[in-house]
């Protein structure tokens, strides 16, 4: 990865991702505006907020997934370990190898369970023992016991919760530094959700995890830091709502003594 010394003064050593005045627009309509945020390394950070506040959009900006959407543009800077990810010389493919993603809907490849894990590792040039990697990844995603006897069966034959953990294992297997999770439990039942949350706790020691969630209890259970986003109709605009970052702090502070009234109202369930 290209080292260009764009580290800003507010960059600390323990910051993984730094959003520096990020505004993301679809066509000419901004979806989320002027986000400043430093996401610490080695912790779980949750993005919460009402629907349409742009929290998924900002998450997808971190590994340049939004590049796949035609009209989506970004201004400002997204720094990963001090490197501007939107610099022209940065290859989005390399970004996604460092910053993996787990999606809202479980999306295993229509290949065998083994191949689901091995595929990503192989295209990333993994040289080691593939069997070992598959086993370790599945173990760390807490799905090994359920699929160790059927590694050759299709990944799509698993249940929804198992599929999602398979997808987490697939992401772990490419050995990223950061794992982004876009509402990973929204399509799952409570028991699978619990298992995935346990998985996240396991991951924390090795990765920086950023999770978007609709579920405030989940944010409270799993995260160390929480960013609360909200959306407002802009004055003198005709269009829809524009999202913005209201508050970013320790999860405990966000839920117990938030500085902003909107945060207080949201976490106490007054709207959202």
């Amino acid at each position: 990865m290209i080292q260009n010394s764009q580290s800003t003064s507010n960059m600390q050593n323990n910051t993984s991702i730094c959003l520096d005045n990020v505004t993301i627009s679809y066509g000419s309509f901004p979806a989320i505006k002027n986000v400043f945020c430093s996401i610490p390394k080695g912790y779980i950070t949750a993005f919460i907020g009402p629907s349409g506040c742009g929290k998924s959009t900002i998450l997808r900006a971190i590994n340049r997934m939004n590049d796949l959407i035609d009209a989506c543009t970004l201004t400002g800077r997204v720094l990963f370990e001090g490197v501007d990810l939107y610099n022209k010389r940065i290859d989005p493919v390399e970004v996604r190898r460092k910053i993996g993603m787990v999606f809202q809907q479980p999306n295993p490849f229509p290949k065998s369970i083994y191949e689901n894990i091995a595929f990503g590792a192989r295209i990333n040039g993994y040289q080691g023992n593939m069997d070992e990697l598959v086993e370790n990844s599945l173990k760390r995603a807490a799905v090994w016991d359920e699929c160790k006897d059927k590694l050759n069966e299709s990944g799509c034959s698993l249940s929804g919760g198992q599929q999602q953990r398979l997808c987490i294992a697939r992401t772990i297997a490419i050995e990223p530094d950061v794992i982004l999770m876009d509402e990973p439990c929204s399509a799952l039942d409570p028991i699978s959700t619990l298992k995935i949350e346990e998985t996240m706790h396991e991951l924390k020691s090795n990765y920086t995890v950023i999770i978007v969630t609709h579920n405030m209890q989940q944010a409270l259970r799993v995260s160390d830091f929480t960013a609360f986003f909200n959306a407002e109709v802009q004055p003198n605009s005709t269009g829809g709502k524009v999202g913005y970052l209201v508050e970013f702090n320790n999860t405990e502070k966000i839920f117990n003594s938030p500085k902003q009234k909107a945060t207080q109202d949201y976490v106490s369930g007054k709207f959202g």
Binding site: N63, G120, I123
Partner: peptide, 19 residues
């Protein structure tokens, strides 16, 4: 979502298309 899955683990466009 299959395309996203491929790109999300760092597949290049050609890997995603061919594989």
């Amino acid at each position: 979502r299959l395309r996203e899955a491929a790109y999300g683990i760092g597949a290049t466009r050609w890997t995603a298309i061919l594989k």
